[in-house]
């Protein structure tokens, strides 16, 4: 029996979908069998980030309404050897096309076959959010160091606390080292203390995330990038490893490193 984890944030644009794609891919790289479920019905884009857009034949609403079998709708990511799968959202329906009971049944089905089921939650706290958390065993909360995202995250934690899900774990995304060091934004400790939830990981701002997402390759596939390292650490922590947090300090090159071009 697998585990269903919902990736949520409240506010839009903080990196839920990107995080879902990358954590899912990182878990698959660790040898887990993962299914990603896009719940952003009407505004799907998890498939785009994974580069699977052209493979969609059936979607989650087709499954719920009985037009397709579950295994017909699930898309296999060919880059992995039977490790990563996607259940795409519908584009021609809205968030009310599915309800909590159907979700619980659907995710229950998926948990039988997969080690991890990652649910990409839509922004907001309406039906789409309710559906997404209804079937989850665990929650990952994505926020950025911006006050608006943190405020929404706080609201989401409050809502999740009212469900049987245990306290969500936090990812602080898009951290700009310089700004945080100068104190322009809340630092990692402040955010974690304010929200009083467990910190799952931090992701530094990295142009490569957008660049690789645009090509349909999650950034985590390339281990050289700082954001990729962040997502890999998060995946390992989900699996129960103890991985130290990446440091915030900007490394200053010594004169010798500059001369010899070392990193």
């Amino acid at each position: 029996m697998g585990k269903a984890i919902v990736v949520t944030s409240g506010k839009g644009g903080v990196g839920k979908t990107t995080s879902t794609a990358n954590i899912g891919t990182a878990l698959a790289l660790q040898g887990e069998k993962v299914c990603l479920v896009d719940m952003d019905i009407g505004l799907r884009n998890l498939d785009v980030i994974l580069g699977l857009e052209n493979r969609i034949i059936y979607d989650i609403i087709d499954v719920v309404e009985g037009r397709a079998k579950l295994h017909q709708a699930i898309i296999k990511d060919k880059r992995f050897n039977d490790q990563l799968f996607l259940l795409p959202a519908a584009q021609h329906a809205d968030k009310n096309a599915i309800n909590e009971e159907q979700m619980i049944e659907l995710i229950g089905e998926l948990k039988k076959d997969y080690d991890y089921v990652l649910i990409d939650c839509p922004a907001g706290i309406e039906q789409g959010f309710k559906n997404s958390i209804a079937a989850a065993d665990d929650a990952i909360l994505v926020t950025t160091p911006e006050i608006s995202a943190i405020r929404d995250a706080d609201r989401i934690i409050g809502l999740i606390e009212q469900t049987p899900i245990k306290a969500p774990r936090l990812i602080i995304n898009r951290i700009r080292k310089g700004m945080m060091e100068r104190g322009d934004v809340m630092d990692i400790d402040e955010i974690t203390r304010h929200l009083s939830v467990e910190l799952l990981g931090i992701i530094f701002e990295d142009d490569e995330v957008v660049r690789s997402s645009n090509k349909g390759n999650p950034v985590v596939l390339d281990p050289d990038h700082i954001s990729s390292q962040g997502y890999r650490n998060i995946a390992r922590r989900i699996l129960g490893d103890t991985v130290p947090l990446m440091t915030l300090k900007e490394e200053k090159k010594t004169i010798w490193q500059k001369i010899f071009g070392k990193k």
């Binding site: 405020r151 929404d152 706080d154 609201r155 934690i157 409050g158 809502l159 606390e161 009083s196």
Partner: peptide, 14 residues
Amino acid sequence: SSPTLEVRNVRSGQ
């Protein structure tokens, strides 16, 4: 007559 004791955080929207 007796105060209610609550040990928790009251979050946004609660």
